[in-house]
């Protein structure tokens, strides 16, 4: 029979408190399930020791694909109608860079969005279950995963760190 688990959330009024709490919890046996906040926080990222986002790789891939798509589209379409006009070459290599540039930006941005969606796992409607709504407004929330029998201990620990602890309703986020 699997152990009953639950999530305890502590709300903090500022990021430094939340970052301190993250460091403190990381020193215990209880894993941090999540940290929520109304703004991005450098201090919390440092406390969590998270790596730099990989969105840029999607953006780069999009840009490379975009440039060749745009440039080669222009070359291909010009070559399909090889009529010399005004004695000028059919393939205008320099102006085609403009098309290549615009496609580079377009595909880079599309890559950026795809990267953001995939890496941030959006849409994430399921995450809303048990999510502390105060965290979109003013508070930073540190969500700690613990066994049901450890709930009181975690509660005391987080309160001791200055957090306002919210206890999940029965069956709300336990697993």
């Amino acid at each position: 029979m699997s152990e009953m688990r639950t999530n305890i959330t502590a709300l903090f009024e500022n990021e430094n408190q939340a970052a301190e709490a993250v460091r403190a919890v990381r020193g215990t046996q209880w894993p941090i399930k999540d940290v929520h906040g109304p703004i991005p926080s450098e201090a919390i990222s440092e406390a969590l020791e998270v790596k730099k986002s990989g969105v840029g790789w999607f953006t780069l891939a999009g840009g490379i694909i975009g440039f060749f798509t745009g440039y080669l589209l222009a070359v291909f379409t010009a070559a399909r109608w090889g009529l010399i006009v005004g004695g000028k070459p059919v393939l205008a290599y320099i102006p085609f860079f403009i098309v290549g540039f615009e496609f580079t930006i377009l595909f880079s941005v599309l890559g950026n969005v795809v990267g953001l969606i995939l890496l941030a796992r959006l849409p994430a409607y399921r995450d809303l279950q048990g999510y502390p709504p105060e965290c979109s407004g003013s508070y930073f929330g540190v969500v700690v995963d613990c066994g049901a029998d450890e709930q009181d201990a975690v509660h005391r620990f987080l309160t001791g760190l200055g957090g306002r602890v919210t206890v999940p309703a029965p069956g709300e986020n336990g697993s």
Binding site: H36, P40, I105
Partner: peptide, 22 residues
Amino acid sequence: GWTGRYEHWRHYTRGYLLFAAL
């Protein structure tokens, strides 16, 4: 389903910066 998770912010801030740069 945005919840302001650090994972959301981590990728969002990077993505937003790249948006601005592009």
